[in-house]
Amino acid sequence: MSDADKYWYNLKTGEVQQGFEAPSADRAGPFDTAEDAARAPEIMRERSRVWAAEDAAEDD
């Protein structure tokens, strides 16, 4: 499956889209399923928490 066929979360509208419907600056993804794309904000927050914890551990 190419990225053009995958699902994206539109950061401006909060909608799930398939393919390159929105400009790249407005898309988060790609995701393999529409369900994962719908969870994009939650996934991004969790990844940010993990990265912040890793950065903090490296600074110690």
Score class of each variant (00 low, 15 high):
residue 2 S to D: 14
residue 2 S to R: 11
residue 3 D to H: 12
residue 3 D to E: 15
residue 4 A to L: 07
residue 5 D to F: 04
residue 5 D to A: 15
residue 6 K to Y: 11
residue 6 K to V: 04
residue 7 Y to G: 08
residue 8 W to S: 03
residue 8 W to Y: 14
residue 8 W to T: 01
residue 10 N to V: 07
residue 10 N to G: 04
residue 10 N to W: 01
residue 10 N to S: 08
residue 11 L to F: 09
residue 12 K to Q: 14
residue 12 K to L: 13
residue 12 K to A: 15
residue 13 T to W: 02
residue 13 T to I: 06
residue 14 G to W: 04
residue 14 G to Y: 01
residue 16 V to Y: 05
residue 16 V to N: 08
residue 18 Q to M: 10
residue 18 Q to G: 05
residue 18 Q to F: 02
residue 18 Q to W: 03
residue 18 Q to V: 06
residue 19 G to D: 06
residue 20 F to Y: 15
residue 20 F to G: 09
residue 20 F to E: 03
residue 21 E to D: 12
residue 21 E to W: 04
residue 22 A to W: 00
residue 22 A to C: 11
residue 23 P to A: 04
residue 23 P to F: 02
residue 23 P to V: 02
residue 23 P to M: 03
residue 25 A to S: 13
residue 25 A to Y: 09
residue 26 D to P: 05
residue 26 D to T: 06
residue 27 R to N: 14
residue 27 R to G: 04
residue 28 A to M: 10
residue 28 A to R: 11
residue 28 A to E: 15
residue 28 A to I: 06
residue 29 G to C: 03
residue 29 G to Y: 02
residue 29 G to F: 01
residue 29 G to E: 00
residue 29 G to W: 04
residue 30 P to F: 00
residue 30 P to V: 01
residue 30 P to E: 00
residue 31 F to D: 06
residue 31 F to E: 01
residue 31 F to N: 10
residue 32 D to A: 13
residue 32 D to L: 13
residue 33 T to W: 03
residue 34 A to E: 12
residue 34 A to I: 01
residue 35 E to K: 13
residue 36 D to I: 02
residue 38 A to N: 07
residue 39 R to F: 03
residue 39 R to C: 05
residue 39 R to W: 03
residue 40 A to R: 00
residue 40 A to V: 01
residue 42 E to L: 05
residue 42 E to N: 06
residue 42 E to D: 13
residue 43 I to C: 04
residue 44 M to F: 12
residue 44 M to D: 11
residue 45 R to F: 07
residue 45 R to H: 07
residue 46 E to L: 12
residue 47 R to Q: 12
residue 48 S to L: 07
residue 49 R to S: 12
residue 49 R to Y: 05
residue 49 R to E: 11
residue 49 R to C: 05
residue 49 R to F: 08
residue 49 R to T: 09
residue 51 W to R: 14
residue 51 W to V: 15
residue 53 A to F: 00
residue 53 A to E: 15
residue 54 E to N: 10
residue 54 E to C: 08
residue 55 D to V: 08
residue 55 D to L: 13
residue 56 A to W: 03
residue 56 A to V: 02
residue 57 A to L: 13
residue 59 D to C: 07
residue 60 D to M: 08
residue 60 D to V: 10
residue 60 D to G: 11
